[in-house]
Amino acid sequence: MPISGVVITGAAEKKQGLLERLGRLSGLEVYGDDDQGNIVAVLDTASSEAMEMLIDRINRDKDVFNVGVTYLNTEDEADRMTLETAVARPFGFKNPL
């Protein structure tokens, strides 16, 4: 269940509409914004895949120029690895040649 901190940047004059659209996305919480079009948000999703999809969704917004990630925490996964319980096996795993 990863958590990330992001700065979403768009055109300053379009910020209001963008904030409204972002507000409708689940897993995204806006913490602040400024006059330069920067929006600080935290993404909290059930899986890394959902995180990727959410970022992709934000990126595809017509008024978004860039999603800058500054922080990513996946310590749930790390905890599971420490306990050696199964973590979803990533694609590509094969027996050695």
Binding site: G5, V7, A41, Y71
Partner: peptide, 15 residues
């Protein structure tokens, strides 16, 4: 952790 993530992002843009 969420608050730490928010603070980290905010600090980079001076918010």
């Amino acid at each position: 952790i969420k608050r730490a993530a928010a603070l980290s992002a905010a600090s980079y843009v001076g918010i």
